[in-house]
């Protein structure tokens, strides 16, 4: 493996390690639960992305085999991180914030933990057999 390849892979590894450490440290450092939600869901996901890029470069440039497993893991993590953050925020609102403390949503219906979802126009087929 040439020197320039090692330098590039080491750069990605160090950047990924710093991002992961900053994300986990933010989970410890920030004051509020809703503030704490910011650090891990963004910084740690970026750190894992850096590790996956380093792994892909290592197997492409060092071994000569191109693999797409890392891209699969990256896609899965980047898809599921916002869903997880949304669920955790809903859990916090349900347990700690009452309905009258929340600001207005500005829409047709209220916040999801305290208001029913809007009615949907779905055609339910009638049971014609009569039982």
């Amino acid at each position: 493996m040439s020197l320039i390849t090692e330098i590039v892979i080491s750069f990605f590894l160090i950047v990924a390690g710093i991002f992961g450490l900053v994300g986990s440290f933010g989970l410890l450092k920030l004051r509020d639960s809703m503030q704490r939600l910011h650090a891990p869901t963004k910084a740690t996901t970026l750190g894992v992305g850096g590790v996956l890029i380093a792994s892909m470069l290592y197997f492409l440039l060092g071994k000569g085999t191109l693999s797409f497993h890392e891209l699969l893991i990256t896609l899965f993590l980047f898809l599921t991180a916002p869903i997880t953050a949304n669920f955790i925020a809903k859990t916090f609102i349900t347990r700690n914030v009452r309905d009258h403390e929340l600001p207005e949503t500005g829409g047709n219906y209220g916040w999801a933990p305290y208001d029913d979802p809007p009615p949907q126009e779905v055609d339910i087929p009638e049971d014609k057999t009569g039982g």
């Binding site: 990924a16 994300g23 989970l27 639960s33 939600l37 891990p40 380093a54």
Partner: peptide, 27 residues
């Protein structure tokens, strides 16, 4: 963690860190 939401968030971050460590061990 003072609340259940903090514990869920910390568990999710632990899972992401473990994924990174597994891939590092693979390298």
């Amino acid at each position: 963690g003072p609340d259940a939401a903090d514990r869920i968030l910390a568990l999710d971050t632990m899972v992401i860190n473990v994924i990174a460590m597994l891939i590092l061990y693979g390298i």
